[in-house]
Computed example of a mutant assay.
Amino acid sequence: MTSFGYTLMTEQSGPRELVRYAVAAERIGFDFEVSSDHYSPWLTEQGHAPYAWTVLGAVAQATERVGLMTYVTCPTLRYHPAVVAQKAATLQILAEGRFTLGLGSGENLNEHVVGAGWPAVGVRQEMLEEAIEIIRALHGGELVDYRGTHFDVESARIWDLPEQRVEIGVAVSGDRSVSDLAPLADHLVAVEPRADLVEGWNAADGTSRIGSGARAIGQIPVCWAPSEEEGVELAHEQFRWFAGGWKVNADLPTPAGFAGASQFVRPEDVAEQIPCGPDLDAIVEAVRPYWEAGFTDVALVQVGDRLQQRFLDEAAGPLLERLRSAAG
């Protein structure tokens, strides 16, 4: 059975609104909720970037049932991995075992702000591997000293550890990242419905198979709106950055950069990638490739803040029924 989640999109909504949406999404019946972790929005039109960990702490107290997850946190530049280990443990206590730590190698947009530069992709992956090792060690509860290529940890210990350990999901995009990172993590995270990623994960040494201990957690933007025209307009305004693909999106440093890179992206280009309008069946068909590729979990991103509450009130419930019926 596929689980369906709701995305707390910190780039497009303020902190109080996000908590309110989280409560509504739980009430409607979403299985889990994921939060982006950004320092800047992709585009100035989105206009928000609250601190994800404060929001998730509030959400943990305001909800009771849904799973919670970062989608995803970069534990290498803006945050030292020892700090990520501490806040993940605290959040797991507040969430009473409902939290999964989603990790990735990050985007320049968010990580350059601390003035540490933006490493090449191979270095970023090495840093992520070291970070996961450090987080795992600290979640073991012992005093940790660590000397690595990229990080040092001196006499660190997490004093408040949850009864249920923090499981780790890691974002992967190809054969190398799967082979290097799968043995270090519990769950796969990916933003494309690629069966080869699931197959590669299942073939890696020392991993649990997807669907039998491990999850494959995907995410897809949708733009429900009362009309197709309004949906396309909103998606173009808020999500035209998405058309560049992740190889481009990882390296641009500012919202102005994304504005420049997407200046020639047309509304119809966005509509080719994101289902727009009131047709719930079209959204189901857009999500279908994920469960057909073997993904166990799919988080929906409703584009834009101005229709967010209306999406939750009018569309989300019927959409979940159709998704669950189609996914079997």
Rank of each mutant, 00 (worst) to 15 (best):
L307Y: 08
L188P: 10
E192D: 10
A327I: 05
E129T: 10
H38E: 03
E130F: 03
A259R: 05
E17W: 05
V303H: 01
E163H: 04
H150R: 03
L128H: 01
A137Y: 00
W241F: 15
Q164C: 01
V34K: 00
V265E: 06
L234S: 02
S40F: 14
W291Y: 15
K87W: 09
A156V: 14
G260W: 12
P221L: 08
R147A: 15
A204M: 06
R20E: 14
I135W: 01
R78M: 13
A182T: 02
R266D: 07
H139Y: 10
E233W: 00
L234V: 03
V144L: 14
L91K: 02
T63F: 07
A52W: 12
A156N: 05
V55C: 11
E33Q: 15
Y6E: 12
V153R: 05
Q92A: 13
E133I: 04
E129K: 11
I210H: 09
R240S: 12
A182F: 08
V270K: 04
R215P: 05
R124T: 04
Y6V: 08
W53E: 06
D175V: 11
R194G: 08
Y146L: 11
V191A: 09
R78H: 14
M69D: 11
E126L: 09
G200H: 11
L300C: 13
P41D: 10
W291F: 12
F151R: 06
L77M: 12
G117S: 10
P255H: 00
V170D: 04
A225W: 01
P255S: 01
E321P: 14
T54A: 12
M127N: 00
V55H: 04
L43M: 06
D152A: 15
I28R: 01
W53D: 01
E167R: 15
E292M: 12
G5M: 06
A286G: 04
A195P: 00
L323F: 07
R324W: 08
H187P: 12
V170A: 08
V123T: 15
C276I: 12
L18V: 08
E126V: 10
G47Q: 03
G140F: 05
V191G: 15
A261Y: 10
Y71A: 14
L300G: 11
V66F: 11
A286R: 14
R27G: 10
L197C: 13
S208P: 00
E129L: 04
F32H: 14
E129Q: 13
A316I: 10
G260R: 13
L91D: 03
R209K: 15
A185G: 04
F32N: 03
V248Q: 07
A261H: 08
Q12C: 11
E33R: 00
D297T: 08
G97H: 04
D196S: 14
H38Y: 07
E167Q: 13
C223I: 03
G328K: 05
A95C: 08
H38N: 07
L109H: 03
L43I: 04
G260C: 01
I28Q: 02
A25T: 11
Y79T: 03
T70D: 08
D180V: 14
Q86E: 15
G245E: 02
I134D: 02
G106P: 11
P278T: 13
S208G: 04
P41Y: 07
A261C: 00
M69I: 10
F295R: 04
V23W: 00
G213C: 09
D180C: 07
